[in-house]
């Protein structure tokens, strides 16, 4: 063991130690603090909603708040029941999902399994284009193009209804449903399909009995993401859902989903007043709902991802 006995500390060797590298340390601190800051901002959203919204849920007991049908923010004393907002949200998100899922998944299957590359490219380009449309533009289109049709078709006084909003929302959730489902279908290993073809299946049988079931969790995540989008969308429903505060009984009633309720009420609410707090409480409930939907989607996607990766 020659070198262990030999005298250490050759001039060069000793410089291995004691370099403080202050610049480096400061930058690392900055990066760390910045990470903390970003997280504070993100958690701050929840904190603000809780702080501004919880008082309203104390003032009006939560079951009355959720299930009360009367929203009289400026009467004395005010009454806050958001059931009609909530039911409206369910209507528009429900209609949107009902329309967008079969169409979106069908299109995704076609793009992933059947379409020639050129056709797929063009369709995807158009879908991408649609996903870039701001929601206010979709609201505008619903307002001037779709609502007159709806009015005439159902012989209504106004074409601004839950159905109109639902149709526009379905268009807006299509891009995410199509692209996530398509990814899920493309991730199905070719061996699975080859095996099925080997057993004498037709192309459709392979799609229906092999590809779609294998990609099912990814497709359901796509659906969840579409639902999340429909629940959270604001401008479109503000512009085309009709804005009525009464409890909707049919899809062709004018209605005010939760997001639209916040958007139309916040301008008139006195800062810190009961209506202001009630609107934050609606925001809190929206936050929880979308978080829940997105968490499920993320979870399902995770499972799907693991399914085909062999250890």
């Amino acid at each position: 063991m020659a070198f262990f006995d030999s005298s250490p500390a050759t001039g060069a060797g000793s410089s291995l130690k004691g370099r403080p590298r202050w610049g480096e340390r400061i930058i690392e601190k900055v990066i760390f603090l910045n990470g903390v800051f970003a997280i504070i901002v993100l958690l701050g959203v929840l904190f603000i909603l809780l702080r501004q919204g919880l008082p309203a849920l104390v003032e009006t007991p939560i079951h009355e708040f959720l299930f009360g049908t009367k929203w009289y923010p400026v009467s004395e004393p005010p009454t806050f029941g958001i059931a009609s907002f909530f039911v409206s949200t369910l209507w528009v998100a429900g209609i949107s999902t009902l329309l967008a899922v079969p169409v979106g998944v069908g299109a995704a299957i076609y793009l992933a399994e059947v379409a020639p590359k050129k056709v797929a490219d063009v369709v995807k380009l158009l879908v991408e284009l649609l996903s870039g449309f701001p929601s206010v533009v979709m609201g505008f289109i619903g307002l001037v193009l779709l609502s007159p049709w709806v009015r005439e078709l159902f012989n209504l006084n106004t074409g601004l209804t839950g159905l109109t909003a639902g149709i526009m929302l379905s268009m807006m959730s299509l891009p995410i449903i199509v692209s996530v489902s398509e990814d899920a279908l493309r991730a199905v290993p070719d061996e699975f399909k080859q095996a099925a073809y080997g057993l004498g299946s037709t192309r459709w049988e392979v799609i229906w009995h092999v590809s779609v079931p294998s990609a099912l969790s990814g497709i359901s995540a796509a659906v969840m993401l579409g639902v999340g989008r429909a629940i959270g969308e604001t401008m479109t429903v503000l512009m085309v859902a009709g804005g009525a505060l009464a409890m909707p009984v049919s899809p062709v009633d004018p209605m005010t989903p939760m997001t639209a309720g916040i958007a139309s009420g916040i301008g008139n609410a006195v800062q810190g007043g009961p209506q202001y707090q009630a609107l934050f409480a609606i925001g809190l409930i929206l936050f929880v709902m979308t978080l829940f939907v997105n968490l499920i989607a993320a979870r399902v996607l995770e499972v799907q991802k693991r399914k085909f990766t062999r250890e």
Binding site: F4, T10, R19, R21
Partner: peptide
């Protein structure tokens, strides 16, 4: 255990890994 370079245990606290890897 002990890993020595130029007479210094490179896993000792205070050793600058960057300088070590440079050499």
């Amino acid at each position: 255990g002990k890993v020595e370079f130029g007479g210094i245990d490179i896993y000792e606290p205070g050793v600058d890994v960057v300088e070590l890897r440079k050499r």
